[in-house]
Design a protein around this nucleic acid. Sequence first.
DNA 1: TAATACTATAGTAAATTACTATGGTTACTT
DNA 2: AAGTAACCATAGTAATTTACTATAGTATTA
Lengths: 134, 134
Amino acid sequence: MVSISTKGIYGVAAMHALYKSPNAKLMQIKEIAAMTQISHGYLEQILSSLKKSSLVVSIRGVNGGYKLAHDAHEILVLDIVEALEGKLFVPSENVGASVVLDSFWADMQEQTRKVFSVKLCDLDKSYQTFFYEI
Amino acid sequence: MVSISTKGIYGVAAMHALYKSPNAKLMQIKEIAAMTQISHGYLEQILSSLKKSSLVVSIRGVNGGYKLAHDAHEILVLDIVEALEGKLFVPSENVGASVVLDSFWADMQEQTRKVFSVKLCDLDKSYQTFFYEI
DNA sequence: TAATACTATAGTAAATTACTATGGTTACTT
DNA sequence: AAGTAACCATAGTAATTTACTATAGTATTA
């Protein structure tokens, strides 16, 4: 089954929570955890990966927490997912020996990555669309 | 890591071989296996699944083999992949509780499935494009 | 300096993947 | 009518991945 793992979904949920934080206020892990229903420990790991990829910044100590490292219009869902799961949709090497199929899969990969190139600030829009179109 | 499994890639390769068979001649498993480098036993399983999904038809006995069940312009890569791996990119249920994110992922799924809705007869075109555009 | 935050690493049960192996059953050809 | 070569079905398995939990820190600040 082709699917994105929960880790990527969690990551997007966490980033979305940070994006929605009023006045871009720092959010503590336990706040994000409560909001997203992700366990504290697992969320720690996820945020750590996101930090390594420079998607969030953290501040230590009492009243510390996390916030987005960049503006939400500079962050793509693709960045978040790839920070947590590696490059999206890598076609396996050495499968078959057809140049035609190789280009085909490379093309699919590129297009799939385009689909995931949604800006964090536009993430709510599919809900809006969904809402108004019916 | 998000990726399509080799099973789906093999399935597309096998279907492509059948599509390319001169005069839509029946192809035996061992011919397809030789062409695609897939092991005989595994290919049997894959073709069996494709048959169950009515993507190929088989003829038994000496000089038997497989051929496409429909015209190549009626078969989508999505059909092949989903026959072998289940529905593409199912967003996990119960992850988070946000209606906004639910619609977002549903939207992503729909768009990803669109990317994979390439007709078998158009599969070579990405190679052409690739070739001419450079 | 105590408390609360972040950091790092190890471990693990369950599920999935990518097959191989085995033993059929069917049907065409001679 | 019989042998051969094809298809069909199911079971098993090693390796990998997933989705966490657990543990033991280190850093910062009220």
